[in-house]
């Protein structure tokens, strides 16, 4: 998609609808169609990092929300639930998005 403005007129599109600005993928917050989000229970989490490794989006990192614990970057998390499925202590639950 063109990146010049959010909703360009047809006369404003780049030639061939090309992306002419490198790195424009960063402007796309692809997590907005997520239907559920992962929640970590810190009492059961052993901080093994399995969820970080298995996340297909690479959006789970340590130290985002709380020092020492993993959490998902919700701007990119699709809510697939793989982290919850793989967690060895089953400390991750998925919570349905309200909107």
């Amino acid at each position: 998609m063109a990146t010049q403005s959010a909703k360009p007129k047809w006369t404003e599109l780049a030639v061939g609808t090309a992306i002419t600005v490198p790195g424009s993928a960063r402007q796309n917050r692809t997590g907005d169609w997520r239907s559920s989000r992962p929640i970590w229970n810190h009492e059961e989490c052993i901080r093994c990092g399995v969820c970080v490794i298995f996340c297909p989006e690479g959006c789970i990192h340590f130290d985002q929300d709380q020092p020492g614990y993993p959490s998902a970057d919700l701007e990119y998390c699709k809510g697939c639930g793989i982290c919850a499925h793989e967690c060895p202590t089953a400390c991750i639950t998925t919570q349905e998005e309200e909107e």
Partner: peptide, 17 residues
């Protein structure tokens, strides 16, 4: 001078293309 040709055209852009 890197560019991308042929990216996805989401419903917000396809009509204009």
């Amino acid at each position: 001078e890197p560019i991308s040709m042929g990216p996805v055209g989401i419903p917000d852009i396809y009509t204009e293309t």
